[in-house]
Amino acid sequence: MPLTAPTLDLTADPIELTAALVDIPSVSGDEAALAGALEQALRTQAPHLEVVRCGDAVLARTHLGRERRVLLAGHIDTVPVAGNLPSRRDGDLLHGCGTSDMKAGDAVIAHLAATLTRPRYDLTVVLYDCEEVEAARNGLGRIERELPEWLRADLAILGEPTGGAVEAGCQGTLRAEIRTRGRRAHSARSWLGDNAVHGAGAVLARLTAYTPREVDIDGCGYREGLQAVRITGGVAGNVVPDECVVTVNFRFAPDRDADAAVAHVREVFDGFDLAITDLSPGALPGLSTSAAQEFLAATGTTARAKYGWTDVARFAGLGIPALNYGPGDPNLAHTREEHVDTSVISRCASVLTRFLT
Rank of each mutant, 00 (worst) to 15 (best):
A236T: 04
C130K: 14
L174H: 04
V79K: 14
P161A: 08
N238M: 09
R66F: 09
P47C: 04
D129I: 03
Y128Q: 02
D218E: 14
T7R: 14
N138L: 07
I276R: 03
D9C: 13
C220L: 01
A200T: 06
V108I: 06
A253W: 14
S343H: 13
G300H: 10
T124Y: 09
E224T: 06
T299V: 04
R145N: 08
T247G: 08
R304S: 09
T7H: 12
R251K: 06
T180D: 06
R66Q: 13
G74D: 14
D216Q: 05
F250N: 14
A110G: 10
G201R: 11
E31Y: 04
A20V: 02
I15K: 13
P14H: 15
L112P: 10
N238E: 11
I15F: 14
L151C: 07
P86S: 03
A261M: 05
L34T: 10
R152H: 12
R184K: 07
S26L: 02
I276T: 05
L10T: 07
A60S: 13
G308M: 05
L174F: 09
S280L: 08
N331R: 11
L38P: 07
E243V: 07
N331I: 05
H334L: 01
L21H: 08
E337W: 06
G199I: 06
C244K: 02
A37E: 10
S100P: 13
G91D: 05
L352C: 09
G36K: 02
T211P: 00
F295W: 08
P212C: 04
D278T: 05
V265R: 10
E50I: 00
P14N: 15
E31V: 05
R336M: 05
Q40K: 14
D218S: 07
A200K: 01
A236M: 08
P330C: 06
L59S: 01
V312W: 05
R184G: 14
R53P: 15
V344A: 12
D90V: 02
A291K: 04
A236S: 15
T7E: 15
N324E: 04
M102N: 12
W309C: 01
D56C: 09
T335G: 06
D218H: 00
R266I: 00
